[in-house]
């Protein structure tokens, strides 16, 4: 059980003067139940990549296997795949359209051919998971606050009960509390429902906290696919890609320069705290 990409290549405008790679010979395997963060500069191919994973884009060459099956093979049911690999786009609240919250969340399950009752049950469960209470079910989605809208939109995908959840910058534009809550919600989904989570992000600090694998893209190529700590060792390379390591990792480097023998891969506040208290014998 996994998502496996093999030599995935996507060319824009092939055969013209504007020909350019959106993805170039990308291969990886994402094991079931992992929490993967995809990091890269704007235009590095992140968004194109995730849209290949549920078949919204077709590769120029190479392919994607889901649970061992080639999703681009003739006769493969892409519509069914999209219910198993849920994709939440950037600013998902811009896709809300129904009269009330619950009906909007039911849209996905109903497209799967479920009955009204089943769809409603799924929608309720999904709304509960994102922390939207019953009092809001009958409200128009357009009357909610920004953070609530975003959660309703995520519930709209969750209600299809996907095995994999892909999110394109789910925290963009949210305030600090919204960001924290969204990330906490994802971690909970991942640990409790054993969903595979693939998170596209700009923030190294965010992903250092939650991801167990890190994918780094640069100019359509996959540069790293490893545990975050291993990736953070390559400070110079990451910087040459226009990326940064977490602020705490930079601090560790500064401390080493100042003469403290600290682990150069610490990346979160809690790690750094434990490490420093130990080293400073406090």
């Amino acid at each position: 059980m996994s998502i496996r990409a093999e030599h995935l290549t996507h060319l824009y405008s092939p055969g013209t003067a504007f020909e350019s790679y959106a993805l170039k010979d990308i291969s990886f395997e994402i094991a079931d139940g992992s929490f993967v963060a995809v990091i890269g500069h704007t235009g590095s191919g992140k968004s194109t990549l995730i849209q290949h994973l549920n078949g919204l884009y077709r590769p120029t060459s190479g392919t994607v296997y889901y649970n061992g099956e080639d999703i681009f093979a003739e006769g493969y049911d892409l519509k069914a795949l999209r219910t198993k690999i849920g994709l939440v786009f950037q600013y998902p609240e811009y896709q809300l359209f129904e009269e009330d919250v619950i009906t909007d969340v039911m849209f996905g399950p109903k497209n799967m051919g479920l009955s009204d009752d089943e769809a409603r049950a799924r929608a309720k469960k999904a709304l509960m998971q994102v922390g939207i209470g019953e009092s809001l079910y009958k409200r128009s989605p357009f009357d909610l606050s920004g953070g609530q809208k975003r959660r309703v939109a995520i519930a709209g995908v969750l209600a299809m009960d996907p095995e994999v959840l892909i999110l394109d910058e789910p925290t963009a534009g949210l305030d600090p509390r919204g960001r924290e809550e969204t990330l906490a919600m994802l971690e909970e989904l991942h640990s409790e429902r054993k969903i595979t989570v693939i998170l596209v992000s700009h923030s190294m600090d965010d992903v250092a906290e939650c991801a167990d694998m890190l994918m780094v893209l640069k100019d359509a190529e996959l540069k790293f696919f490893d545990r975050p700590k291993e990736v953070f060792r390559h400070v110079e390379e990451l910087e040459s890609y226009g990326l940064a390591v977490p602020e705490i990792t930079y601090l560790a480097h500064d401390l080493i320069k100042a003469g403290l023998d600290i682990d150069p891969t610490v990346s979160t506040v809690s790690e750094a705290k434990a490490e420093l208290l130990k080293l400073l014998k406090w």
Binding site: Q51, N54, K79, R82, L87, F89, F107, N111, M112, M160
Partner: peptide, 12 residues
């Protein structure tokens, strides 16, 4: 973008 997002929710 909206079209793709709704397709991801199973719209046909």
């Amino acid at each position: 973008k909206i079209m793709k997002a709704q397709m991801a929710r199973g719209a046909d």
